[in-house]
Amino acid sequence: MTPMATGPVIPDFGTVSPCVRDNGLFCADWFAANWSSVFWPALAQHVRLTVIAVGIGFALAFALALLAHFRRWLVRPLGGLASFLYTIPPLALFTLLVPVTGLSVLTAEIALVAYTLMVLFKSTLAGLAEVPEAVRRAGLGMGLTRREILVRIELPLALPAIVSGLRVATVTTISVVEIAAFIIDQGLGSPIIQGLQSPFNTQFIGAGLLAVALALAADGLIVLAGRLLTPWATMRRSA
C-alpha cells in the first residue's frame, strides 16, 4: 500500500471527549475537528474524480451512441465492447492498468470512464430509438431533414432515458471511486480504508456516510435537472 498523505489523525487520548476515548461508533466532535483536514479534502477529490469520469464517459458514450444510431450495424459491436468493459471487476481493471499507467489519477479515471460507458451508451441509444413511429413519420412527412429530426425530436425525446442513465452512471461511479483508493490516495475511499485498518470507528463511518450522502445528493440533483429539462415528461392531463 502507498503511504497515506492525509495522515490519519490518531486521537490524542489526553484531551479528547469520552466518545473518542471509548471509540464510539460516530463521534461528531472528532468528525467536526477533522472536517477541514480529512473529510472535506477527501469529499472534494471524490466529487472531482466522479465529475471527470462521468463527464468524459458521457461525452464518449454520447458520441458513440449517435454514431450507432446512424450506422445501425455498429450497435452490436459497440454495445458488446461497452458491456465487456462493464463486466471486469473494478479491482481487476485497476490491476490491469497499473503496469501501463502507474498508480495514477489517470489509471483511476480510465477505469472509471470504462465503467460509465455501458450504461450511458445503452441509455442514450435506447432513448434515441424511443421516438414513437407515428412521431417519426409525422416529422419525416412534414419535410424535416434527418438532422432536424435528430435535433428537434429524437434528442429531446431521448432526454429522460439519458437522465436515468446519468443517474445510474453517477451513483455507480461514486461507489467505484471509493475502490480507487486502493491505487490513489484520493477520495472518500482513503479515510475509509485507513479507518478499516485502524480500530478507530468515526473515521470510516464518517467517510462512508459522506459517500452515501454524496450519492443521494448527486442523484437528487440529476433528477431535478432532468425535471427542469423535460417539463413535458411529468405533465399528464393535469391542466
Binding site: P132, A134, A138, L140, G141, G143, W232, A233
Partner: peptide
C-alpha cells in the same frame, strides 16, 4: 421541399410530445 409543400395528417396525429 416537396414535403414542406404538402400537409400530412396521420391517424395517431403524431404530435411531438415534448
Amino acid at each position: 421541399a416537396l414535403r414542406r409543400g404538402i400537409g400530412y395528417v396521420i391517424q395517431q396525429a403524431g404530435l411531438f410530445p415534448h
